[in-house]
Design a protein around this nucleic acid. Structure first.
Lengths: 254, 254
DNA sequence: GTCAATACTTTGTCCTGACAAACTGACTTG
DNA sequence: CAAGTCAGTTTGTCAGGACAAAGTATTGAC
C-alpha cells in the first residue's frame, strides 16, 4: 500500500567495527545504526541495505548483522519484511515501560524532590503484603512510610515493605535517595513488576498530609517488584495527588 | 547467594520436534518448554539441561535450542547465567504489557460488556487529537463517543478519534465489538502505544451518564496507538469509574 | 490490455564448527 | 587451615553455508 520502494537505500556508510574491543560486534553495529537513525541520517521510511550486502561491507557475518538489526527491531526502530527489506519506522526508541522510581523521575525533570520519612520500622507483614512478596504470613518486613514533595509541595504518600535481610535502611538514606536507587546500590536490580493503578477519594488523614480537600481525587498505585532471579524486592502502596501527577506509559505488544 | 546447585537437572523428557511441520523448530521447542514449566513439571528454581545436551537429545542444533531458550528468557520465565546454567524463575509468563482493549478484557473475565454508541461522526480533528495522530490541524477524523457497560452497570465513557480512510465504522459494529477488534479485522494491528493515566473528579454530565455522584473519583486514560509500520491508528480519551475499574500492568525492564 | 506464470530479491530458518568469558569446585601451596 | 590456582562446565559470540518462504517485478499468453 503505497510503500515507497523507489526510495534509495541509505548505505549506512560510516559504520566500522573494532574487533579488538570487548564490546560484541553485533552490539557495535546496532549502536552505530541507532545513532545514525536518531541523528536523522537515515530518515523515517528509508530502507537500509539488505543484510547480505551490509554484512559484507562491514566485514562481519550475516548472523552478526541479523542480530544487530533484530536488536533494533525489538526496540521498535526498524521493521523487517521478508522479500521487501528493512525500513526505519521510528527515529527514537520507544521503551516498553520504564521501571524507574518516582524520585528519579522528579530529579530528571528538575522538580526538586524532597522526602520526609514518617515511619521506618520492622513489623510482621500483613496478609496482603505477605502474599504480594511471597512470604509466609507474619514474616517480619521493613515497613516504610514516606511523604514525597516536589517543588515544595506534597505530591505522594508512599507505604513500602521490604523483606528483611535484603538491605539495611536508615532514615537519612531514605530522605536523600529514592528507594530504587538504594536497592540498586545494594546490588538488587528490579526487573519485573506488577502494578495496579486506580483512583479514590482522599480520606481525612490523607487530605491533611497531602494538603488536598477531603474527598479530592487521588491516584493509587500498588506494586510488587522482583529482580532477575525472581526474588521479591519490594511491595509498595502509594497515593498521588491527581491534581499534580499522572502516569505515562509506553507500551509494546509482542 | 544460596542458589541450590545441587538440585537435579530436570531432563525435559517428553519434548519432540516435528520436522514436517511448518512451525519453526525453535518455536516448537520453546512452546513445549513453556508448557512443561506452566504445568509445574519443571519447578521454579530447577535448572534445565544445558544447551548442548538438550540440543543433542532433541536432534536439533545448538543455535536452534538457544533461540528457543532465549525466547523464554525474554518473556521472563527463564534466567541464564554463564558458567552456571539456565533456571526457571517464574512459572507463568509475565507479559510486558497487554495492548488489548477494554472490551476483550471484559469478555475474557465474563463481565458481560455492552456498548452504547452515543456519537459517530466525521469532524475536523481538534488540535490535541491532530497532534497525537500526527495529522495536520483540521484534518477530518472519525469521532466516536461510547458508553461501556459491564454486568449491566455503566463503567466507562470513551471518546475516540480514528484517521479517515482507515476503516469504515457503523454504529452496530461498534455496539457489538471492541474498537481494537474492528481495527484488527480491517488489517491494522496495534503494536505500540503511549498512555497517560490520571484521575479527576466527575463533572455533572459525566456523573449523570456514569451514575456516579458529582465529584466522584474517575480514572482517566488518554492513549495513542500505532501499528508496526508507525502509522497512527487511534487516539482515545477515556474516563472510568474508579469504584469499578483499575489498570493492571506487568512491567519488564530492559 | 489483462491476468497468470516466472524470475529475482530479501528476510527467515537451520546447520556445523570454533573459540571466548564467566562461574564452580577441587586442588595445591604457603 | 586459608587463600590462590587451575581445570571443568556452561553460556556468549562469531563464522560461513544452505535452503525455504514471502514479497516484488518482469515476462508471456490469451
Amino acid at each position: 500500500m503505497a510503500r515507497d520502494l523507489s526510495a534509495p537505500r541509505t548505505p549506512v556508510r560510516p559504520v566500522e567495527v573494532d574487533r579488538s574491543s570487548p564490546v560484541p560486534l553485533y552490539f557495535q553495529v546496532a549502536t552505530r545504526l541507532q545513532e545514525l537513525i536518531e541523528a536523522g541520517e537515515i530518515g523515517v521510511g528509508a530502507r537500509i541495505e539488505n543484510e547480505v550486502d551490509l554484512a559484507e561491507r562491514l566485514g562481519v557475518s550475516r548472523p552478526t548483522t541479523r542480530r544487530a538489526i533484530q536488536y533494533l527491531v525489538e526496540r521498535g526502530m526498524l521493521v523487517r519484511k521478508r522479500g521487501v527489506g528493512t525500513q526505519v519506522v521510528h527515529p527514537k526508541v520507544r521503551r516498553p515501560v520504564e521501571l524507574s522510581s518516582l524520585y528519579d523521575d522528579l530529579v530528571s525533570t528538575d522538580r526538586e524532590p524532597r522526602t520526609e520519612v514518617l515511619a521506618l520500622k520492622v513489623v510482621p507483614a500483613p496478609p496482603e503484603v505477605a502474599g504480594a512478596l511471597e512470604l509466609s504470613p507474619g514474616t517480619e518486613v521493613t515497613w516504610i512510610e514516606r511523604l514525597r514533595h516536589a517543588n515544595g509541595e506534597p505530591l505522594a504518600l508512599m507505604h513500602n515493605a521490604i523483606p528483611l535481610g535484603l538491605l539495611h535502611l536508615e532514615a537519612p538514606d531514605l530522605a536523600a535517595h529514592g528507594l530504587y536507587e538504594l536497592l540498586r546500590r545494594a546490588g538488587y536490580q528490579p526487573r519485573t513488576a506488577t502494578q495496579v493503578i486506580g483512583a479514590r477519594a482522599a480520606g481525612a488523614a490523607e487530605a491533611r498530609v497531602l494538603r488536598e480537600r477531603r474527598g479530592a481525587s487521588l491516584l493509587t498505585m500498588t506494586r510488587t517488584a522482583w529482580d532477575v532471579s525472581g526474588r521479591a524486592l519490594e511491595y509498595g502502596a502509594h497515593v498521588y495527588r491527581a491534581s499534580r501527577y499522572s502516569f505515562e506509559l509506553n507500551l509494546t505488544a509482542g
